[in-house]
Amino acid sequence: MYVAAAGLALIAVAVAWPVPQALTRARWPARHPAVALALWQSIALTGALSMIGSLLCLGFAPSTTLPDGIERLSEHLGRGPLPPEFGVIHLSALGFASGLTAHLAATVAITVLRTERERRRQHRDIQLLGNPLPGTLRTWVLAHPTPLAYCLPGLRTRTVLTAGLIEALSEEELRAVLEHERAHLDQFHHLVLLSFRAWRLALPWFPMAQRAERAVALLTEMLADDRARVIVGAKPLQTALRTVGDAGDLGVMDSGITDPDAIARRLQRLEYPAQATLER
């Protein structure tokens, strides 16, 4: 059990630092965003499970197996003294494990609820303030001069454009933006972003969580770019991106304002032909 605890701790440390570090520096994610996105998700999941698992193994180390340990401890829990072989270290490890699990679960729940509330409010405001764009499905226009596009996930999804964006872009560029936002909605990017946001909020002292969230946000943008490029071609998407940024999935990542660096990286990869995996 001590060996298992040490092994899991080693995995936890690896996915907490060197692995994500290498992944943020790597160049291939820009070519294979879907693979990189899956990898980030497994890193996050592995990190949480190995950390909790390591603590559990340490806590139950006085027994030979995990079920055995749970049985022995639960027999004594609530009635009288704990088995003598469970020391302070074991009990605090178990305490940490349950505390961490509760903390992660609570943060995810709170993040989901908050996001859902914000999203509902946004939908309502758009319905009161915007106008449906004729000839499109679930696209709404806000009378505002700032060029901007974003999408609102939900039971009934909406893509929101500003009048300023329609004025700033050609019809083809506008189509590229719409396809990009639609890809976000179709591929449920808001759920991926939501989980990484919850991860970051649960571990605010952990710099890698923040980096993971940014990396994942950029990857979802690239995936949406790829969809738009397959449908309308890279040119209109590039010019549209140069003219305006986009705000990603609203209510999922604090409106996810794209930074200039991310825009530059997206533009750069659009210079090269789409990967074979996308054409299939």
Partner: peptide, 29 residues
């Protein structure tokens, strides 16, 4: 228009560091 402006402000602002997000947006567009 005022209400639309307020909505846009929410869209563009960041939950934690409002000003930083706005600055980034300005840099983008």
């Amino acid at each position: 228009p005022e209400h639309t402006a307020a909505l846009m402000h929410q869209v563009l602002s960041h939950e934690h560091d409002r000003d930083a997000a706005l600055a980034r947006f300005v840099g983008t567009v």
